[in-house]
Amino acid sequence: MSNPKSRWILWAAYAVLFLALPYVTQPIFKLVGDCGFGWILLIFYLALPLLGLGCGVADGIVNGWSLWWLIAPVVLFIPHFFLAMDAAADLSIHWDEFVLFAGIYVGFAFIPNLIAGLIRNSSQRSRAQS
Rank of each mutant, 00 (worst) to 15 (best):
S2W: 01
S6F: 09
R7P: 00
I9W: 07
A12E: 04
A12P: 00
A15W: 01
L19R: 05
P22A: 13
Y23A: 12
T25D: 08
Q26L: 15
I28P: 00
F29T: 03
G33Y: 13
D34N: 14
C35K: 09
C35G: 11
G38N: 07
L41W: 04
L42C: 07
I43D: 10
L48Q: 05
L48T: 02
L48S: 06
P49H: 11
L50F: 14
L50C: 12
L51R: 03
L51D: 01
L53F: 14
C55Y: 01
G56I: 09
D59W: 03
G60E: 00
S66T: 10
L70V: 01
I71W: 03
A72M: 12
V74Y: 00
L76Y: 02
P79E: 10
P79N: 12
A84P: 00
D86W: 04
D86A: 12
D86Q: 13
D86G: 10
A89S: 13
D90N: 14
I93W: 06
I93Q: 10
H94Q: 04
D96V: 12
E97N: 07
F101H: 06
Y105D: 08
F110V: 06
I111N: 01
N113K: 08
I115H: 00
I115N: 06
G117L: 09
L118C: 12
L118Q: 15
R120C: 08
R125M: 09
S126P: 02
A128S: 15
A128D: 14
S130L: 14
